[in-house]
């Protein structure tokens, strides 16, 4: 089983730390950030595969964190996990590129299923490029690969400059 690196972002300390421990018991890597600013800083240092993000937090709210993650790290999938979110919030989060929108509390097995699905989807763009190449649509395949490579370079440069 592949180890997935998950970053949990929530200002409810006991909730998020316990959830993190349960994820680690399931043989995955898990780290915790208690607010949006801390989450973005942690991501600059060590990029997770999937972020599980609360919507309502003091300081930078979840929607703004999502916006920034999607802009700086488009390959990182974000699952929103919130209590009593509105349909409007869900719509906005999906528009901004959230992979999934879940209501708190969620069964850990349900959450892990979504995390695994999000992790898998990270590789879908390279699989998509291969499919286009096989179909002879080399320009489209090249475009997808170039965009992926460009993002990888940005991430590498960020790490080097640290």
């Amino acid at each position: 089983m592949e180890k997935i690196k998950i970053l949990l972002v929530d200002d409810e300390k006991e909730f998020v730390e316990t959830l993190s421990e349960r994820i680690r018991m399931r043989e995955h890597d898990s780290d915790v950030a208690l607010n949006g600013e801390q989450a973005l800083k942690k991501m600059d240092d060590d990029l997770p595969d999937v972020v599980v993000l609360d919507l309502k937090m003091p300081g930078m709210d979840g929607m703004e964190v999502l916006r920034r993650i999607r802009k700086a790290y488009p390959k990182v999938q974000v699952i929103m996990l919130t209590g009593h979110g509105s349909e409007k919030d869900e719509e906005e989060a999906k528009k901004l590129g959230a992979f999934e929108y879940l209501e708190k509390p969620v069964e850990i097995e349900t959450l892990m299923k979504k995390v695994k699905k999000a992790y898998k989807s990270k590789f879908e763009s390279s699989m998509m490029a291969a499919t286009f190449a096989e179909a002879g649509e080399f320009d489209t395949a090249k475009e997808i690969r170039d965009s992926d490579e460009e993002q990888d370079e940005i991430n590498k440069d960020k790490k080097k400059s640290k």
């Binding site: 409810e12 316990t18 009593h84 509390p105």
Partner: peptide, 14 residues
């Protein structure tokens, strides 16, 4: 209150 319940749920889940 929902946050309280979510915490109880995770702690008892652990």
């Amino acid at each position: 209150l929902n946050n309280v319940l979510a915490s109880i749920r995770e702690i008892s889940g652990l």
